[in-house]
């Protein structure tokens, strides 16, 4: 009778329903992580990790802000074991909110102090340097000169041709603000940003988008991370040129943190350690990053920074404490 079939189907669905409440990575040898690394980079790294250790990794790629929000939302029942990549500032914020656990091991001990949290809550993976990238074809067509100074960006010749990420959502962009403040003081920095606004066509949601847009020709100039740009330039046939501001530029430290009460911390620890292995370092280097440990690693020659480049340090704690205030300020002064 039709009734029986309906009951069977109903029971089946109820079963599925109940099943959906269970966790997926129940199997013993896999972990789930959030990563803010470039997707293909993450894929390569994690597949290599799996090959070496047999530990399977399920990952979700999220922008820095999204990953932080997700981790906070899940704090009573963390789904991921660790957060791999993402701006160091983000990791510092999570530390402040009590969402991460310190991790130290033989491998992390060797990391230089400047590249990790003093209490071990986060460990750095590489530095990302803020640089300019110009689409040379567009520049040629419009008779623009590649910028070599922060002030060059304010020139009216760039009107509507620059893209930077939205500092509210992108760590990259907030990094830019803190760098400028560090360099010229808060008042002047905001004046600069206000003037820059005239030349901005769009504040993108993700940090990497402006660079990619320049590659596509959607935009003529962007501010982004050196390693991303160099890799993009080498891999695609896009007409890109990198330039450095002579006044000096800021940087981020991409980091990895262990999520508090996350599942399978021991396996997660293995992954963190592996990130500093020769294999991992070489993979990072192949991708135009400069990893923490460069010994015995072949760096890409294009990835090497000019020695004349001045790096501006930012106090991560200060940056963290003032983030809300500064973003607010940016929104009210500039994003109207």
């Amino acid at each position: 009778m039709a009734m029986n079939r309906i009951w069977v189907a109903f029971a089946f669905f109820c079963g599925l329903f109940a099943l959906s409440g269970c966790s997926k990575t129940a199997s013993s040898n896999s972990i789930a992580i959030y990563t803010s690394l470039d997707e293909s980079m993450a894929r390569l790294l994690l597949e290599s990790f799996t090959k070496e250790t047999g530990i399977k990794v399920d990952f979700v790629r999220l922008a820095t802000g999204e990953a932080a929000a997700r981790i906070e939302a899940e704090k009573n029942r963390p789904q991921a074991a660790l957060w791999l990549g993402g701006v160091g500032l983000g990791h510092a914020e999570l530390k402040a909110k009590g969402l991460t656990t310190p991790y130290t091991s033989e491998a992390t001990q060797k990391i230089p102090a400047a590249l990790k949290d003093s209490e071990g809550y986060w460990n750095g993976l590489y530095r990302g340097i803020l640089v300019f990238v110009t689409n040379t074809k567009q520049a040629e067509a419009r008779k623009l000169t590649v910028p070599t100074s922060w002030n060059d960006l304010l020139s009216p010749q760039w009107k509507g041709l620059i893209q930077i990420p939205n500092p509210g959502t992108s760590g990259t962009s907030y990094n830019l603000i803190t760098t400028l403040i560090e360099s010229m003081g808060e008042e002047k920095a905001f004046e600069y940003l206000k003037n820059l606004h005239k030349n901005i066509s769009q504040y993108t949601k993700s940090g990497a988008a402006p660079t990619k847009n320049v590659a596509l020709g959607e935009s003529a100039l962007a501010i982004g991370y050196f390693h991303d740009i160099v890799r993009l330039s080498q891999e695609s046939k896009a007409p890109l040129q990198v330039s450095f501001p002579k006044e000096g530029t800021g940087y981020e430290i991409a980091a990895v943190s262990l999520i508090k009460n996350g599942p399978k911390p021991e396996l997660a620890g293995k992954l963190i350690d592996w990130m500093y292995s020769k294999t991992a370092s070489q993979l990072l280097a192949d991708y135009y990053y400069v990893p923490v440990f460069t010994e015995g690693v072949d760096l890409r020659k294009e990835a090497v920074l000019p020695t004349t480049l001045k790096l501006i340090d930012t106090n991560i704690d200060w940056a963290g404490q003032n983030k809300e205030r500064l973003i607010d300020l940016w929104n009210s002064k500039i994003n109207t």
């Binding site: 802000g65 932080a68 929000a69 906070e72 914020e93 509210g168 959502t169 949601k205 809300e324």
Partner: peptide
């Protein structure tokens, strides 16, 4: 969405 996730201002 941006405030909730991006800025963390829930």
């Amino acid at each position: 969405y941006l405030q909730f996730t991006g800025s963390g201002n829930l």
